[in-house]
Design a binder for these strands. Structure first.
Length: 549
RNA sequence: GGCCCGUUGGUCAAGCGGUCAAGACGGCGGCCUCUCACGCCGCAAACAGGAGUUCGAUUCUCCUACGGGUCACCA
């Protein structure tokens, strides 16, 4: 038995399976040619952000567009950051955005043949892989304490050396078997480190599907692959999992680019073929004139909860992300306004290699367009779902009379040029509140260039001539009549030509009516509004308004 | 600081040696038999800087500046 084999047995006496065993347990997938296997691997930290969704969409499109597999893995190797309810949140967010996994973790248990899909449950697999590395002499236990490491770093910086555990700085690299055995038997804690054969003076060519071929220094650090609790670090878990889960394409944030050489080295040490990589640029935010990565702490718009609470339509967020993800998406959308985003041919090569500023204006615009295309029924359903969660009293109002609510939401909807004033479910209430007597606030002010007595008389007179069966033309003709009676121009153009001859024009009459009936100077088409309000409400509001003057 | 990556209008971006340098959002102005919204028309607005290579550089190379990322028993 070689020394390293002995060491492997000493360190991992409980591991009896071999790598070959796992090769047969997790055989290469049988898939159509070109099919991609992707995964999204969030950490259960209780916080889901735009980046998670961003990456998930790339993964999902890549997999499903190619007839491959898209799966969910939970990366919970960091005990300290684990939060209760986090996996439920992950599940909820992906479901809400309509992302469907072919396999992986689910709240009901794992689905698929390449599990477990929760890293915490894969300990034996990692340890087996680690054992193999030790047996090959490519990994070793390190007993250095935190203080010793800090000490090392201090020495390195004072000497101008690069900090890190590598080369001759790697104190535990060449411990004798006897030494290790004694320490292990004494119960001294240790981490397992890769015995790097790299040299940072040398460069390697690495390939990224969006950034192309890059030149990076070789990894020379003896990185930790198993922490002292026996749980792998990200680096090692990634390599082992993506190998045995047979991932073909790894999509991850570009913060991983600098550790890319470590991963490649690890794949090589294991004797495995690495998958393809896509390092995605971060979503940025402008802060004091500088761009910076969207941050969990400072930017509420980074968290998915924000979008839910504000009531952004999920379709709008997906649409926005797609425009950011593939530069030719908008162009495609113009030609295919009705198509599902899934019909778009997504290409990794079309992804931007630099970070885009998060653009709320753009999102708003997209959202307006999407909501404008929805039917009143759809809008109603979505507002209802939002209100149930965030505005119970409004929910009650809406659900008490669905057909009234839908009539309101139908105003200006469905034609060639639909209104686009709705884009957030949380703003729907402001938009339609005056339709409900419970939320209606009678106006305090009318346009100032019209005398109060005129307003009062116009309202009284209008009440007498109002007929709920008038069509829009007749309705407007009556307003013109009123206009003439009170010294206002019946035609706007006539007023514009001779402004001094009139107190105002027919638009002012319409405005008086609008204000009386809606309490606002701004509203959708007044005729449509009074039709929906109905005779009783209209007359009552006009009377009350006239009396208050 | 070392190492990587990036840099076209305010923003997102087409472009891949020869273009009057697309388009979208935003802004501004105008039009549109009731406000708003919609729609339509128009305007302003960009190749970070400097060297090369070339007949010719936004496009290729190098340098500088600026921005970003990363240097953990976190992912």
């Amino acid at each position: 038995m070689t020394a390293s084999a002995k060491l492997a047995e000493l360190l991992f006496p409980d591991i009896t399976k071999t790598l070959e065993d796992y090769e047969t347990i997790y055989p290469p997938r049988v898939l159509p040619k070109g099919a991609k296997v992707t995964r999204i691997a969030p950490s259960p930290t209780g916080f889901m952000h735009l980046g998670n969704l961003f990456g998930a969409m790339v993964d999902e499109r890549l997999a499903h567009q190619s007839g491959g597999v898209f799966y969910l893995r939970i990366e919970d190797t960091d005990q300290k950051r684990k939060v209760d309810g986090a996996v439920e949140l992950i599940d909820e967010v992906f479901k809400r955005f309509g992302l469907e996994f072919d396999e992986g973790f689910t709240l009901q248990g794992d689905k698929g043949a390449y599990g477990p899909y929760v890293q915490q449950q894969r300990g034996e697999i990692y340890r087996c892989a680690a054992k193999a590395l030790v047996a090959k002499g490519m990994a070793y236990p390190c007993f250095c304490t935190e203080e010793e490491i800090a000490d090392l770093r201090g020495k390195q910086t004072s000497q101008g050396a690069n900090p890190g555990y590598y080369g001759s700085w790697a104190l535990c690299r060449n411990l004798s078997f006897e030494d290790v055995e004694a320490r292990v038997k004494a119960g001294q804690p240790f981490v397992l480190r890769l015995r790097s054969n790299g040299n940072a003076e040398h460069t390697i060519k690495v390939r990224d599907l969006v950034k192309g071929e890059l030149e990076m220094p070789e990894n020379e650090t003896d990185v930790v692959i198993l922490k002292s609790d026996g749980i792998p670090t990200y680096h090692f878990a990634h390599v082992v999992d993506d190998h045995f889960m047979r991932t073909t394409h790894v999509v991850r944030g570009e913060e991983w680019l600098s550790t890319f050489p470590i991963h490649l080295q690890l794949f090589d040490a294991m004797g495995w073929q690495p998958p393809q990589f896509i390092h995605t640029a971060h979503m940025m935010k402008l802060d004091n004139g500088n761009k910076r990565k969207l941050s969990k702490r400072k930017d509420p718009e980074f968290g998915m909860e924000y979008y839910d609470r504000e009531g952004f339509p999920v379709e709008a967020i997906i649409e926005y992300l797609m425009t950011v993800l593939n530069s030719n998406y908008e162009e495609w959308r113009l030609k295919n306004p009705e198509a599902s985003y899934r019909d778009f041919k997504f290409k990794a090569e079309k992804m931007s290699s630099s970070g885009a500023l998060f653009d709320l204006d753009k999102l708003t615009d997209i959202s307006k367009n999407i909501v404008a295309r929805m039917t009143a029924d759809e809008v109603y359903e979505k507002v209802l779902v939002w209100a149930e969660k965030y505005d119970p009293s409004f929910y009650l109002l809406l659900s008490a009379d669905p057909s009234y609510a839908k009539a309101i939401l139908s105003i200006g909807r469905g034609g060639k040029k639909p209104r686009k004033d709705l884009w957030l479910w949380s703003k729907v209430k402001d938009y339609m509140d005056f339709f409900y007597d419970e939320l209606f606030f009678p106006a305090q002010t009318y346009p100032t260039h019209i005398s109060e007595s005129d307003v009062k008389k116009i309202l009284e007179q209008y009440a007498g001539m109002y007929n709920e069966n008038d069509d829009q033309n007749l309705w407007f003709d009556k307003l013109k009549l009123l206009a003439s009676d009170f010294g206002f121009a019946a035609e706007t153009k006539e007023y514009k030509n001779n402004p001094t001859d009139y107190k105002g024009h027919v638009g002012d009459i319409a405005m008086i009516l609008r204000v009386a009936v809606t309490g606002k100077m701004v509203s959708p088409d007044t005729y449509a509004v009074i039709q929906v309000l109905g005779k009783e409400r209209v007359l009552h509001r006009i009377q009350v308004a006239a009396q208050s003057l």
